[in-house]
Simulated scan of single mutants.
Amino acid sequence: MHDSEPAENPFNAVPFVPLILVLIIAGVEFTLSAAANGMIGGAQGVGWRSAVFGEIQFYPEIMTEVFERGRGSFDYYKRFVTYPFVHANFSHALWACVLLLALGKFVGEIFSAASFLILFFACSIFGAAIYGLLSWQNTQLIGAYPGVYGLIGAYTYLMWLTLGRMGDNQFKAFTLIGILLGILLVYSMIFGSSPTWIAEVAGFLVGLFIAPLLAPGGWAAFLNRIRQRE
């Protein structure tokens, strides 16, 4: 008989930082879902999600208040980093967690913990800011998706490097974002468009362009790779 090997803990495969982000998002969602179903919070628990939205969601009017009317406050500024942790419903949060785990494993194994955090929050912040500037509606922005799309940007950059070393077509690196944008287009055609896609596309572009600075070796390594190709 062969000795049975201990099952590997799936959480061991995911770097610490993306795992913590997922646990925070999941914890918030389980709490709000439980409250909405009357498991906790009593009669007032049904309104917890709306109350949390009111406290941490981002909306385009914030950009007007801060930059045009000069009414900046902690309540406004905090929303740039708090909105990724609350979602519209369970499935909205579930997909964010799935993507964050998958991309977090790939990107987090190459980027340092600090670089991963900077990447996620920079894409979330600038994604929200660009959304606030370009949106034609004052629609709330919630969810981790601008930060997740930033990870897709970093993933695209890393795949670009990998394909280059293999001598393959480097534009294949854009396959994932192409598929996701195609799904987004089909979804918009069926269910109607929401301007929040601006934050997601902006998050991707920010992630793509800052990934060379945050990847191992930083800007020096990026310039060295450019010189080698000349």
Rank of each mutant, 00 (worst) to 15 (best):
G167F: 05
F16S: 12
I110Y: 06
N9H: 13
M39C: 10
G203R: 08
E68P: 02
E230V: 06
L181T: 06
M189Y: 08
W197F: 08
L94C: 12
F53M: 10
G153Y: 15
N89A: 13
T196P: 04
A43E: 15
L101Y: 08
G54Y: 02
S135R: 14
G47C: 04
G167C: 09
I177P: 01
V206F: 10
V52W: 02
F67H: 14
E29G: 09
P15K: 11
E109Q: 15
G178D: 06
I183E: 15
Q170M: 08
E8L: 09
L163P: 02
F11W: 05
I56V: 14
I142S: 12
M1L: 05
D168M: 06
L99R: 03
K78H: 07
D3Q: 00
P216E: 09
I25K: 12
G164A: 10
L134N: 05
I179M: 12
V14L: 15
Q228T: 02
G182L: 03
E65K: 14
L119S: 03
A35I: 01
H92E: 06
L151Q: 05
L223G: 03
T156F: 05
Y145T: 13
F191R: 09
L161T: 00
S112N: 11
L141I: 10
D3K: 00
Y149H: 15
D168A: 13
G54I: 06
F58Y: 11
G70D: 08
G192V: 02
V22M: 14
A114H: 11
K105G: 05
R49H: 06
V186H: 04
A154C: 07
F74T: 14
S124Q: 11
S135M: 08
N37D: 14
G182W: 05
V98R: 14
Q228C: 07
N169I: 00
H92R: 09
F106Y: 13
F58K: 08
S115M: 01
G132I: 03
G164T: 02
V52E: 09
N9A: 13
L141C: 04
I56F: 10
F204T: 04
A93Y: 00
H2C: 08
G38F: 04
L205Y: 00
T162I: 00
E109A: 10
C123R: 05
Y145Q: 15
A26Y: 01
W219M: 10
S135V: 03
P146D: 14
R165T: 00
L101R: 04
D168N: 10
F171G: 12
F80T: 07
S193Q: 07
K172N: 15
W197G: 01
A154I: 05
M39I: 06
A220Q: 07
F126K: 06
T175D: 14
S194K: 07
G41D: 12
A211N: 00
